[in-house]
């Protein structure tokens, strides 16, 4: 991988493990984009996912149906 290749995996892993960096991703995405060789569209997508809490382990999965919007039921 060349030095200018987008480093999506590195960015996501760091955002998942470093709260300060995750905050930087949300507040100053342009600087993160530069550091990780990403374009504006790409960093916006990752920022949106971070804002939605997707860069965290899925701790509580749906072993059983839960009552929340957007779920669904076995029938």
């Amino acid at each position: 991988m060349s030095d200018s290749s987008p480093r999506v995996r590195d960015l996501v892993q760091r955002a998942a493990s470093d709260p300060g960096f995750a905050e930087q991703l949300l507040s100053d995405p342009e600087s993160v984009a530069t550091e990780y060789n990403l374009g504006a569209d790409h960093i916006d997508q990752i920022k949106e996912l971070a804002g939605a809490g997707l860069l965290k382990p899925a701790v509580q999965a749906h072993t059983v149906p839960v009552k929340e919007p957007g779920g669904g039921g076995y029938y």
């Binding site: 987008p6 999506v8 995996r9 892993q13 990752i46 860069l55 965290k56 382990p57 899925a58």
Partner: peptide, 16 residues
């Protein structure tokens, strides 16, 4: 390719 890499990265974070 970008979406695939993103999916791979998030799989690692969310599901290990």
């Amino acid at each position: 390719p970008f979406q695939r890499e993103l999916i791979d990265a998030i799989r690692l974070v969310r599901f290990g």
